[in-house]
Simulated scan of single mutants.
Amino acid sequence: MPIRFLTLTLAAMASLFSIAAAQAPVPLAVGQEWSIHGEGLEDVRVVIGHIEEVEGLGPVVHISVSGIPPEYTPGGMIGHLPYQASALPAFLDTQTGTGEVAPEFENGLAHWRNAGGGAFDISLEELITVLLPASYPTDPPK
């Protein structure tokens, strides 16, 4: 009886591991375009522009964000955002294909490097709906 129990237990565990492996997230890569989680943010797209190891931060994924509703930021775009590689996948929804970063991406990346900047680990939804509007003292220009 104990051998049968052990066999069934091992079979169940193997089944769970194979399900987890089948649902493992796609590894992040330069050029990928993703949708994000968030009500009212269905048109927002993230494009991965650069991935690097940064001393003191670990892996950082640099992204461009487009399709942001106008009530959150003028122009509907953020040219460059650095994200902790360990945090970003939780905020991405579906890989929608490949894309190009915003024209401002390289300038933003250079500025970030010169400033010795950090990397975000909060949700993209929170960054877009809370932090961006808070960065404007009044309504953003239209």
Rank of each mutant, 00 (worst) to 15 (best):
E33Q: 14
G76S: 12
E125F: 09
I63R: 05
V46R: 03
Q32I: 02
N114C: 12
A90N: 07
G58C: 01
F17Q: 09
G116D: 14
I68C: 10
V65R: 03
G38M: 07
D121C: 15
P82R: 01
Y72N: 02
S15A: 12
L41F: 07
G49D: 11
Y136M: 10
Q95P: 05
I3Q: 10
S15K: 00
F105G: 07
S123N: 12
E71D: 09
L131A: 12
A12H: 03
M1V: 05
P103W: 06
G67R: 01
E104Y: 01
Q95L: 11
R45C: 03
G40L: 06
I68D: 13
A119E: 00
G38R: 05
R4A: 14
A22N: 13
A29S: 14
T96V: 13
V46I: 13
G117Q: 02
R4Q: 14
D139W: 06
E126D: 15
H50F: 04
S135T: 07
I78R: 06
L10Q: 04
A110T: 14
Y136E: 06
T94D: 12
Q32C: 08
S35D: 02
G38C: 09
I63W: 08
A12S: 09
G58A: 03
P27E: 14
N107I: 04
P103T: 13
F120M: 06
A14V: 01
Y83C: 04
I78M: 13
G116S: 12
L124Y: 15
G38Y: 08
E104C: 02
T98R: 07
P70V: 08
P141E: 15
E126V: 04
A134T: 09
S35P: 00
T138L: 15
P141F: 02
H62W: 13
S35F: 00
I63G: 14
P25F: 14
F17C: 12
T129K: 14
E52H: 02
S123G: 15
I48W: 00
A20Q: 12
K142I: 05
F105C: 06
W34S: 09
Q95T: 08
P89L: 08
Y83Q: 06
E104W: 00
T7V: 15
F91N: 00
I48M: 03
G97K: 07
I36W: 06
G116E: 15
